[in-house]
Amino acid sequence: MRLPLPDQVRIDVDLRWRAWRRLAELGLTDRAALDAALAAEPSSTATVHHAAAVSSLPTTEAKEFAWVRATGEVSVPNYEVEAAGRGMWRTDQRALTQPFAERYFADFDALTSAHQGWVQATVVSSYFPITHLDDTTVTAARGLLARDLPGAVRRPLADALDELERRLALLG
């Protein structure tokens, strides 16, 4: 049974894509449906939301979709790069994202050199494996911070590590 929405609730592009993204996170939609939704309402805003929704899908292909944006293998506007990174890390998808958490640290230099300016810092923070609440992630991040890194890279990495450690403290 489909209930009507109250008259005061307006379904705009942002709300519609928030729903698509949640469906993606839960695995209740697929890439084809997300692509069709974008084709039905193409705009720069919808394209950014689409990147986040696709990256949120619980599939290896979705995580690769995000990853090739981080590495610069696929060139897209900066906001799409950020949205894809934020979409890929889901707490209930840790087993799926484990290889990408490892790649983040192993390929850190390639990730940061693929971008310039503020996007470099955005990639460092958006693609940080924030859902991997374990000592391995903390140790790897600390290892990177022990290196001589440019400020634009060091600061977002330090902030991401701080957030991770705070989350871990809440669990402990």
Rank of each mutant, 00 (worst) to 15 (best):
2 R>T: 15
5 L>E: 12
5 L>P: 00
8 Q>E: 15
9 V>A: 08
10 R>G: 12
10 R>I: 10
11 I>P: 01
12 D>R: 11
17 W>D: 04
17 W>T: 04
20 W>S: 00
28 L>Q: 10
28 L>D: 06
29 T>A: 05
29 T>P: 01
32 A>P: 01
32 A>H: 09
32 A>M: 06
34 L>E: 03
34 L>F: 14
35 D>N: 07
35 D>H: 08
39 A>Y: 06
45 T>C: 07
47 T>V: 10
50 H>S: 06
51 A>F: 04
52 A>M: 12
54 V>T: 05
54 V>Q: 03
55 S>R: 02
55 S>I: 08
56 S>M: 04
57 L>W: 02
59 T>Y: 11
59 T>H: 09
63 K>G: 03
64 E>H: 09
64 E>Y: 05
71 T>R: 02
72 G>D: 06
73 E>L: 07
75 S>I: 04
80 E>M: 09
85 G>P: 00
85 G>W: 02
86 R>K: 14
86 R>Y: 09
87 G>Q: 01
88 M>I: 06
88 M>W: 03
90 R>P: 01
90 R>Q: 14
91 T>V: 08
92 D>G: 13
93 Q>H: 15
94 R>N: 11
97 T>E: 07
97 T>A: 13
98 Q>T: 15
99 P>N: 15
100 F>P: 00
101 A>V: 04
103 R>D: 14
104 Y>D: 07
104 Y>I: 07
107 D>E: 13
108 F>N: 00
108 F>V: 02
109 D>H: 08
113 S>L: 12
114 A>F: 02
115 H>V: 08
116 Q>V: 13
118 W>E: 09
120 Q>E: 09
123 V>Q: 00
125 S>R: 07
127 Y>E: 07
127 Y>R: 03
129 P>L: 15
129 P>H: 14
135 D>C: 11
135 D>Y: 12
136 T>E: 15
138 V>M: 11
138 V>D: 12
139 T>G: 03
139 T>S: 14
141 A>Q: 04
146 A>E: 15
146 A>V: 05
147 R>P: 02
150 P>M: 15
151 G>T: 13
154 R>I: 06
158 A>K: 04
158 A>D: 12
162 D>Q: 13
163 E>R: 14
163 E>C: 03
165 E>K: 04
168 L>W: 03
171 L>N: 10
172 G>P: 03
